[in-house]
Design a protein around this nucleic acid. Structure first.
Length: 259
DNA sequence: ATGGTGGATGCTCCA
C-alpha cells in the first residue's frame, strides 16, 4: 500500500500535474492540500476517470484538502474537535482497517504573529485529536503539509532559519509531541541522503539551488511502522513546467490489502 | 539588493 501527500497549491492549476503523477506513481491513498477550490467546482470527474475515489473539503480562495483513494472511505471527518474553524484544513476517513488523516497545518506566517498563535493552538487541538484517534485506530496514518521542519537537517541553512517560522522551538516541540503520542515520521525510519526537502520557495531559484525545507510528512502508528518498507520525496514534479512549490512525499506499507 | 515568484482576487493578501 502506497500512501502519499502533496500540497498542490491550486488544484485548478495543477490538475494536469496531478493526473500525470497519478498515472506513474499510482498511490493507493493520497492527501492533497491547498486545493483552493469550492466543492462544487472540484474536478471529480477527471480524477475518477483516472481510477480514484475522491472526497474533498474545500473553500473559496484558500486552504482545501482532498483524499484520493483506490477504495471507498467511511467515517469521514472534517475539522478538529474543539475548533470551530471555517478554514478547511482537515479531512479524515477510514479505508479498510486504515484510518487516514490529511492535514494542512497553518503556516503561521511569522513567529509572534496572530497567525502563529493560531498555528500553535491548532497544533494543540490536533495533538488531543491524534491521541483519541490512536486509541480508536491501531492502523493510523497522518499525512500532510505540517509547515514544520522537525530538525535542523530538514532545512537548507539551519543557522539562517533558526527560531524562524517552520523551525521555531514551539513548533518543533508540537511536532515532537505528535511523535511522543506514538506516531513516527516514516521518512526517518530509513537512512536518507542529506538535503532532502519537500518544499522550495518559488523565489530566488530556490529549487535549482536546493534551498528548501522538509515540511510535508507521513506519520504512522507503530503497527504500520512495522510494515513500512520505504519512504521518499518525489522531487520530479517540482521540476515540471508551472509546478507547485511542494513535491509529493511517499511511504510504502507492506502486506496491507487494498482496493 | 529587506528583494525575489506564484496563486486567487479584484486595485492586495497569503505563502
Amino acid at each position: 500500500m502506497k500512501a502519499a501527500s502533496w500540497n498542490v497549491n491550486s488544484l485548478r492549476v495543477r490538475l494536469p500535474h496531478l493526473l500525470k503523477w497519478l498515472h506513474t506513481a499510482q498511490p493507493d491513498l493520497l492527501g492533497l492540500q491547498e486545493t483552493k477550490i469550492v466543492d462544487e467546482q472540484f474536478p471529480a470527474a477527471e480524477i475518477e476517470a483516472a481510477g480514484y475515489r475522491v472526497i474533498h473539503a474545500g473553500q473559496k480562495t484558500w486552504n482545501g484538502v482532498a483524499i484520493l483513494s483506490k477504495m471507498d472511505g467511511t467515517d469521514i471527518v472534517t475539522g478538529l474537535p474543539g475548533l470551530d474553524d471555517p478554514q478547511r484544513r482537515v479531512l479524515g476517513a477510514t479505508y479498510g482497517d486504515i484510518r487516514f488523516l490529511n492535514l494542512y497545518v497553518p503556516n503561521g506566517q511569522q513567529v509572534g504573529s496572530e497567525k502563529y498563535s493560531y498555528k500553535l493552538d491548532w497544533l494543540e487541538k490536533l495533538l488531543a485529536y491524534i491521541k483519541t484517534q490512536l486509541e480508536q485506530y491501531p492502523r493510523l496514518i497522518v499525512v500532510g503539509d505540517f509547515n514544520i521542519a522537525p530538525e535542523d537537517r530538514d532545512v537548507h541553512d539551519p543557522a539562517l532559519w533558526e527560531g524562524g517560522i517552520l523551525c521555531s522551538d514551539p513548533e518543533r516541540a508540537a511536532f515532537q509531541q505528535l511523535l511522543a503520542s506514538g506516531l513516527a515520521d516514516t521518512f526517518r525510519l530509513f537512512d536518507q541522503e542529506e538535503g532532502v526537502f519537500s518544499w522550495w520557495d518559488y523565489r530566488a531559484a530556490a529549487f535549482r539551488r536546493n534551498i528548501g525545507a522538509r515540511i510535508d510528512h507521513i506519520l504512522a502508528s507503530p503497527a504500520l511502522c512495522e510494515v513500512c518498507s520505504y519512504s521518499t520525496v518525489d522531487k520530479d514534479p517540482r521540476s515540471w513546467e508551472r509546478p507547485s512549490d511542494h513535491a509529493p512525499v511517499i511511504s510504502v506499507f507492506d502486506g496491507i490489502g487494498f482496493a
